[in-house]
Design a protein around this nucleic acid. Structure first.
Length: 910
RNA sequence: GGGCGUAUAGCUCAGUGGUAGAGCACUUCGUUGACAUCGAAGGGGUCGGGAGUUCAACUCUCUCUACGCCCACCA
């Protein structure tokens, strides 16, 4: 015996992973095989494995191992993302600890430092993915900033620019004042925050008055500080209160700037006073209103610098005391907001908010409390400032059209289908994508400017110079591209594009993309847009979106809440196979997964169960299968289990094709435990130890074959234990000549044997019935009994004879005969149209037996009655499907007969 | 404001137009050499409320309620 009593995952996992990787088995040479391709969402180089990665990568590994076992040329592309902002932040933080800052270095020095960090500390996650058992093509590991990807990014940028799909534009962007870079709409997270709504008076200029006689106009704002850059007041064109002052001017109380009251639909008469201050340089709506009011973008005032400190506007009207103040209170120091409020209050221009306190007294406050949806940067964590700058934009609207069409026409199948609407909804309302970032780590934008601001986009400086002409002074754009710009090229950039490589031809489009729905817009949508634009074909034929792994209580895992579950801890505790199986079993389409350690433990137990079943086989001379096809078998129990394998394999293949990971996992789980371990291995025990050598030989051959099929079918889910068993089960035969990871998926070449199936079903039913009877009559389970059959035909008696040893050993029925039972107490079982009378040696608890039979009878009668009722309904017989009527009739006949037998048994008890 | 999802056994979740399943938890019994990380036998659900379609609804339609998510917006 070579297998230990208990399965210890830690003892084998690292060994097998290294074996697979060093032998190159993650991507065996299969030039003539049909390709199958998926690309891994490149994890951040700064990242470490979290539970979401564990889910995402387990699902991908299941698919790729399944396809590899089916003989495909299965390629799972892997690599890392340079993660511009995240990585730069990590390195800057490290420098900060040494009292250094990025700007102490030149750009080149800093970038070099980041590369050095990457070499030394980056890529933790690649080792962790190995612990999970992921069979990626590490031999060709990529990086979004490696040479090939750089080339792809360069070409994409230049081509899009030349096609007018990338352009430079001055407009408001989401500016992160902490990181001092622009970010895209997707990187902004809007959160409700408790804030204030201030009401102020803006005096009307030139002695103008409202119809009601007031010489000021009331405005309300949540951002008082931006009034230093106000350029208009907007009122609704149909608002009677203000019609007479449209076109008149107001005097901004702090800057003294004069500007007009304009009519614009944006102003909501219901909100505040109905008049709104317009600050085109610091608010997205105001920007649009300003443009409509005829203010040129270049003339819009900008009163904040890159860190959101107040700076002078181009008209020089911001008072000196404001310059350098932060936009709002920070670190206990008042900002521009607080100063504005203070000054206006002193000027008597603040309109207090009046509310009643709990005693019903009126109380004045500076402002009205209000919940404000506030934009935050997803990395920097500070409030985003809309800021007027020059940035590079991708014309996403144009690129989105073919991506919409691809899904609409089925070139891309989204699974689950409900996500299609989200895809369309986003794509159809897509905004220009801001792709420039004011960082140093990333793909530097290949654009050069001359002294007049003319732009030259080219592959290098020499080419740009050529465009600009000899002697023209050029300077390169300082900005880098959004990280997602490069990862959008992953499905073809990693395959050699822009070169026309064999890999590219063979593996594009990819067959499937698996990703969390949280990166649907960030990554998936952009891959679709870029893929179709540059490859003239979709990046993948199917897109599978899975949910989030949540904490046990259903909340989102987050470091701040401290409820993060570490997948590596679970691997240490239960083994990678158990964690993987958990992920698969819990992954039903369209639902998040709640973490449940008990369930992971359950799958560890499943692994142990399989391990022990293999030990049983080993000690009984059952070894590796000699054939791929099912062995020839004459015994019903063997023919039955072969049929069960065929059905299991069909169900498993279907589930995997349908991307129903839960169904796939459950299929193999229940076959292994319920069918193979609980019944088959029990039923064959007497055969293995019996006198009939040929029966024993046949059974050993079949059992070995079935165990092999289980090991192969389970391998995508539990790669480590199965590889271990694959080899250890063959030791007696001198070992396997190939590894399980590249073995062949089951091909039983066997029909489903309905005769054997019904025979074993009967056997299982009879044994189960005997067992439950004993429990209910308080008979010790081990007690051997004799059975006398009533109403049994010769076919039944032959069946009984065939299964005598199993009935004896598993059912504890030492004899079964057609002879009438002797007088005296007995238990009676009704199974499949025959009654089995079991004489009892001692006194029988007649009442218990009556109760048992009565309960059975009631159940059967109830079903029969319901069927009768249905069949008695003329509408049912006429309108229902004939099969349904037929089935109801057959069921009724069965139930009626069973009820009669049970009644007869009861009658015999007196 | 728009969109999506979820409500089934104590818990976490599958599921099908024809009288409901799994894992865990629970109860009782059990060490006959694969396995106590186990085996056997059980208990437990009017499938969120209401209406409709149908011979038949947990399953389809509508509606209500509760919870969750996404997008947009609220000066």
């Amino acid at each position: 015996m070579t297998l230990d009593k208990n399965f210890d995952p830690a003892a084998i996992e690292a060994r097998w992973y290294e074996h697979w990787e060093t032998k190159g088995l993650f991507r065996p040479e299969r030039k003539d095989a049909e390709p199958y391709t998926i690309v891994n969402p490149p994890p951040n180089v700064t990242g470490s494995l979290h539970i979401g990665h564990a889910l995402d990568n387990t699902l991908q590994d299941i698919i790729i191992r399944h396809e590899r076992l089916k003989g495909k040329d299965a390629l799972w592309v892997v690599g890392m993302d340079h993660a511009g902002i995240a990585t730069q932040m990590v390195v800057e933080r490290q420098m900060g600890e040494l009292q250094q800052k990025r700007t102490d270095l030149t750009r080149e020095e800093f970038v070099e430092k980041v590369w050095k960090w990457k070499e030394e500390s980056g890529g933790t996650i690649t080792k962790q993915l190995r612990r999970l058992g992921c069979s990626m093509d590490w031999a060709n590991e990529r990086f979004t900033m490696d040479e090939g990807m750089n080339e792809a990014v360069l070409k994409v940028f230049i081509d899009l620019y030349n096609d007018g799909l990338i352009y430079r534009d001055k407009r408001l962007v989401n500016w992160d004042p902490a990181l001092k870079t622009a970010i895209s709409d997707l990187e902004v997270e809007t959160t409700d925050v408790k804030g204030s709504f201030w009401h102020f008076k803006y005096p009307l200029a030139d002695g103008a008055k409202l119809d009601d006689g007031r010489d000021y106009i009331e405005i309300a704002t949540t951002r008082p500080e931006t009034m230093l850059a106000d350029m208009a007041i907007a009122v609704h064109p149909s608002d009677e209160r203000y019609k007479s002052v449209i076109g008149k001017e107001v005097l901004q109380p702090i800057t003294g700037r004069r500007f007009k009251i304009v009519a614009d639909e944006h102003a909501d008469p219901e909100l505040g006073s109905g008049a709104v201050k317009i600050t085109p340089g610091h608010d997205f709506n105001d920007f649009e209103v300003g443009k409509r009011a005829g203010i040129a973008t270049g003339d819009m005032f900008n009163m904040l610098d890159g860190e959101a400190n107040v700076c002078q506007t181009s008209d020089g009207l911001v008072p000196e005391e404001y310059i350098g103040l932060h936009r709002f209170k920070r670190g206990g120091i008042d900002g521009a907001r607080e100063l504005v409020i203070k000054q206006l209050k002193e000027l008597g221009l603040l309109i207090p908010h009046v509310s009643k306190n709990k005693d019903g007294e009126e109380v004045e406050h500076d402002a009205e409390p209000r919940t404000i949806a506030t934009p935050f940067g997803d990395r920097g964590g500070v409030v985003i400032e809309p800021w007027l700058t020059d940035q590079w934009y991708v014309d996403a609207e144009t690129l989105a059209q073919p991506a919409i069409k691809a899904v609409r026409e089925g070139d891309i199948e989204i699974v689950p289908k409900t996500w299609e609407k989200t895809w369309f909804n986003w794509m159809e309302n897509i905004q220009p994508w801001c792709v420039s970032r004011q960082l140093w780590w990333g793909h530097r934008i290949p654009a050069w400017f001359d002294d007049d601001g003319n732009i030259f986009v080219a592959e290098d400086e020499a080419a740009a110079q050529k465009q600009a002409g000899e002697g023209v002074n050029l300077s390169r754009d300082e900005d880098v591209l959004d990280t997602w710009f490069s990862s959008a090229l992953w499905p073809f950039g990693t395959l050699g594009w822009p070169e026309e490589t064999d890999d590219l031809k063979r593996h594009y489009p990819n067959d499937l993309l698996i990703s969390g729905f949280d990166i649907l817009f960030f990554w998936d949508a952009r891959m679709a847009m870029q893929g179709i634009q540059f490859m003239k074909d979709v990046p993948w034929k199917r897109l599978y979106l899975h949910g989030l792994v949540r904490a046990e209580d259903g909340s989102k895992m987050s470091k701040s809440k401290g409820n993060v579950v570490d997948p590596l801890g679970l691997i240490d505790q239960y083994g990678a196979d158990a964690l993987r199986f958990f992920m698969a079993a819990m992954e039903s389409q369209g639902r998040d997964i709640k973490m449940d350690d008990k369930r992971v433990e359950g799958y560890r137990n499943f692994a142990t169960k399989l391990w022990n079943a293999s030990r049983f086989c080993e000690v009984n001379g059952i070894g590796a299968s000699k054939t791929l096809a099912a062995p020839e078998a004459a015994l019903p129990v063997n023919r039955w289990i072969i049929s069960e394998v065929v059905e299991t394999q069909q169900a498993l293949d279907k589930a995997l094709t349908d991307l129903r990971f839960d169904a796939a996992a459950n299929t193999i789980y229940h076959f292994t435990w319920d069918r193979f371990c609980d019944w088959y291995l029990e039923l064959i025990k007497p055969l293995l130890q019996g006198d009939d050598a040929s029966a024993a030989d046949e059974t050993r051959a079949v059992a070995g074959w079935v165990l092999d099929q289980i090991i192969v079918m389970l391998h995508p889910f539990m790669p480590f234990i199965t590889e271990e068993l694959w080899h250890s089960m063959a030791q007696e035969d001198g070992g396997r000549n190939y590894d399980l990871i590249v073995a062949k998926w089951p091909a039983p070449k066997a029909e489903i044997d309905t005769v054997a199936k019904s025979e074993i079903d009967w056997l299982i039913k009879l044994v189960s019935e005997v067992r439950s009877t004993k429990v209910e009559l308080n008979i010790a389970p081990g007690t051997k009994m004799a059975a006398h059959i009533r109403d049994g035909d010769s076919a039944l008696m032959e069946k009984v004879a065939r299964h005598n040893p199993a009935l004896d050993r598993v059912g504890r029925l030492e004899s079964i005969s057609a002879d009438p039972a002797p007088e005296g107490p007995s238990a009676q079982l009704v199974v499949d149209g025959a009654t089995y009378v079991l004489p009892l040696a001692g006194a029988i608890d007649i009442d218990a037996e009556k109760a048992r039979l009565t309960k059975s009878l009631e159940g059967v009668s109830k079903e029969a009655k319901s069927l009768e009722g249905r069949l008695g309904n003329a509408n049912f017989v006429e309108k229902a499907k004939p099969e349904a009527v037929e089935k109801a009739r057959a069921d009724l006949a069965d139930k009626t007969a069973e009820a009669e037998r049970l009644q007869a048994a009861l009658d015999r008890l007196g």
